[in-house]
Design a protein around this nucleic acid. Structure first.
Lengths: 211, 211
DNA sequence: TAGATTGTTAATCGATTAACAATC
DNA sequence: TAGATTGTTAATCGATTAACAATC
């Protein structure tokens, strides 16, 4: 669908566009200009027009953009209604918290199952998500072909698990372990959620110029 | 301490440098060249030298960098041993999960207390972290002057709470609510952890060029 | 038509990479 | 000394901003 190569910087802004357009749509706004949208997001109007034109001319001169239409277009681009499937590996604290509390569906993702090594956990309830033993992962992936794997297992197990998942056909890894994964050989995308890194970055910036 | 203005891109890489140098140091490596470190992090040697020289010449020609020394320097820059203080606002699922499971100390942050509106929660145990009523927030901040606030409250309450915390002297907001905070007037840094945005970004990238 | 606002090209800015003299 | 590797300057690349003709 993209007219041209879409830069990483643009991709990272797409969910924010989507979110704000959802809000606008819900509050009954039917039309918006790049100038007003920019104001809302803290960007420039120029940048927004530039970004959107990676995918096509969604606006109309003299009018602006139709909010609901633009929301739907960006939703399409992000694939939120495409039903991307996922599995979760490692039902420790963070894994359990995600299963129970994070609304995967809102991001357009269906979490099919969670896996763990601990047989004691298996069968336990995690909201509506079945909890399976890790030994059944290969068969499960062969049958259901999940696109995404959520990595919430202990960090020392992450690299080999990433390898394994990649061989099982997973296309993206949502990485909550505090390691940098390098899947050079494989065509797998990695998205890191590094809490500690994020917090350290904030501390540095918040400290500012003071002694 | 920085010789020059440090770009956001560099700041974002600092925790990764720190983490890898910790690992190297633990595995007994005493010395490393920019070339080898680059290989490890998936960066270029040039970039690493460029980054480090924002802060000073930590290396030595013909030798490279002393791992333990460099680790300590970057730790100093990030302020990990500085004892940054924090409060957490909103003890829902994610707030509780952070209190119980996230190791703030590893990022050099001391979590002083958690706050909630629900009086039923107050007094409940959250690991070692006291759980206080939100009405006591102003007095607490006046007394302890936390540098950072962790925002894990419902999204609709986030903007006004951000304002309030800013007036109470907080310098950084670690924002887990799915709203974009704009504190234009205030000199407050915001670091967003937007799970849904992160996952959508991954889905887009993982989909690649396929239909 | 006149006013508004896009789509798009050109200019600027910032970040990364390459090159190399300095030096351990 | 010879080899290695930094610190730093210059060149390249990418992303943002500005400008404006096209057009609704």
């Amino acid at each position: 669908m993209p007219k041209q190569k879409v830069s990483p910087a643009v991709v990272r802004r797409l969910p924010r566009y989507f979110r704000h357009l959802e809000e606008l749509s819900l509050s009954g706004v039917t039309r918006i200009s790049s100038r007003l949208l920019a104001q809302r997001l803290g960007l420039t109007a120029s940048q927004i027009r530039q970004d959107l034109n990676c995918f096509g001319g969604f606006g109309q001169q003299g009018y602006g953009y139709n909010v609901e239409n633009l929301r739907a277009e960006i939703g399409e681009i992000l694939g939120v209604s495409r039903g991307t499937t996922a599995v979760l590996i490692g039902v420790g604290n963070i894994g359990r918290a995600l299963c129970n509390n994070f609304d995967f569906a809102r991001a357009g993702v269906g979490l099919l199952a969670a896996f763990d090594v601990n047989p004691a956990l298996v069968g336990q309830s995690l909201g509506r998500i079945p909890l399976l033993h890790i030994d059944t992962l290969d068969a499960f992936c062969a049958a259901h072909r999940p696109a995404i794997a959520v990595l919430t297992l202990p960090r020392e197990l992450a690299p080999q698990m990433a390898e394994r998942l990649s061989r099982l056909g997973v296309r993206g890894l949502w990485n909550f372990t505090n390691v940098d994964l390098h899947l050079h050989e494989h065509d797998v995308q990695v998205e890191d959620v590094h809490f500690a890194d994020s917090l350290m970055t904030l501390c540095y910036r918040a400290r500012g110029e003071e002694p």
